[in-house]
Amino acid sequence: MSGQVNKNLEESAPGPGFLEAHLTKSYGSFRLTADFKLVEPGITVISGPSGAGKTTLLNLLAGLSRPDWGYIRGPEKVYFDSNQGICAPPEKRNISYVFQRSRLFSHFSVKNNLLFASRFGNRPLRPGSWEKVVSLLGLTALLGRRPHTLSGGEAQRVAIGRALLAEGDLLLMDEPLSSLDRERKTELLGYIAKIPERLGVPILYVTHAEEELLALAQRVLEVFQGQCRWRETDARAENFSARAKGGDL
């Protein structure tokens, strides 16, 4: 296994956002199996019903949980390889993460939350990224506020900004809009859709909401009962467009 990983690394020079995962993880009777490669930029949606293993998969990729077996490869190094005994901790993976709940640090202002990775995480800001992120997400007016004074939508925007300013090669988003009302969802979907193009960061976006999938997905990785497989997005989108036109949705 490890020999194969090294061979692949030598053969190709993967760009930012590249991720290859071939792994299994078991919790009691539940078993997640993933075997996929992300090579293209843009937004990849991980879709599937609740309990299918979507969050588990993101946690494994981010290093918050450890696979039982397999490997995970990033653009520059191997994050996990059970054969070689490699398991890079989350802080060494250069993968940013937006969680279901904003998880903002209440003892810091919005500005200090946004600057957390550069101040404490040894992830210096790239030139111009502060201005880009703050303007893209409309955060200027919020910078001096404390997290407990923010609405749900504002808090998630700050969480997205904080993750983007960690300057990761890949952004993981775990149902970031699930706790928001429809209006806030629509507003934030607009912000998220612009991220790959404006900031050059590929996104792996978990959702089971079809409206989010339709609005964002350039490709879809389906997770069902612990198994991952690619889905034809266009066909799916056409199907949904047709249903939407027919008034089914």
Binding site: E91, Y97, R101, F120, G121, N122
Partner: peptide, 11 residues
């Protein structure tokens, strides 16, 4: 969860 968030931010 907050500690996990800090870990993904490089700590």
């Amino acid at each position: 969860e907050l500690a996990q968030a800090a870990r993904t931010l490089g700590c």
